[in-house]
Design a protein around this nucleic acid. Structure first.
Lengths: 121, 121
DNA sequence: CTTTTATATCGATAGATGTCAAATTAGAAG
DNA sequence: CTTCTAATTTGACATCTATCGATATAAAAG
């Protein structure tokens, strides 16, 4: 997998989209993550997980917020996980999901203004 | 249109996705914008426009970066515009596109860490 | 008006996506 | 082993989307 994002390895930390043009490869990886956020159910799921006590939640904590079948919730969680936005961990009968804050910060930085606007002004 | 975002009207300025859960309405509006970013061609287009001299670019400045037909570029620019991420303005024969920095900052803030982390720590 | 250039719209099509019901896996408990 | 609960996987289907070629619109130029 090329979507590795090791601690501290902020690959686009200083080149927001407003700075210099994204390469095709960067655009491909980043757009895959934005695509995962591009569904109201998934965005709410991510938000619910992030805001849940302890920073993690099982499907039983999430499904009640939607008028959707279990498999559909499961599908959306899988999409978020495969995009690298959330992690999952089985504990007993339950499976707990948690966000990956680094990845979210990275996406935020890509859209945000240049970190310090050094000499551009 | 309910996607209005008047200058200064930062509707989600202080509630990133990691704070409290998004409402269904918020998730709907925000996910529509992320969806527009969820395509590599569109993300690169946005980046090219943002990074272009003067903060604006005509289609002729953009099309050369892709191996795609004119209508396809036009389609992606329309999606970005209808999502509220870019503006367009005709000047003579050309049509110039420019980003809407407020909207980008808003999306960045939604994904970013809490602005000041007041008493949560 | 006709031609040329720049861009958008239309119509069609192959492939992706969201959703559900049915079947399956995984662990806990009897 | 059987049963129950939590969650996923599979398979099907309707809708959406990215792409193209053909056509249309808009402005400038002759």
């Amino acid at each position: 997998m090329s979507n590795q994002l090791e601690p501290g390895g902020e690959r686009w930390c200083c080149s927001p989209v407003t700075g210099e043009p994204l390469s095709g490869e960067q655009a491909g990886e980043l757009s895959a993550m934005f695509k995962a956020l591009g569904d109201p159910v998934r965005l709410r799921l991510l938000s619910l997980v992030a805001a849940h006590a302890g920073g993690e939640a099982c499907v039983c904590d999430l499904a009640g917020a939607f008028d959707l079948s279990g498999p559909t919730i499961s599908h959306h969680l899988r999409v978020l996980r495969e995009a690298g936005l959330i992690d999952s961990e089985r504990r007993g009968t339950w499976i707990f999901y948690s966000v990956r804050p680094q990845v979210l910060r990275q996406l935020s930085a890509v859209l945000g203004p240049a970190p310090a606007s050094p000499a551009t002004a």
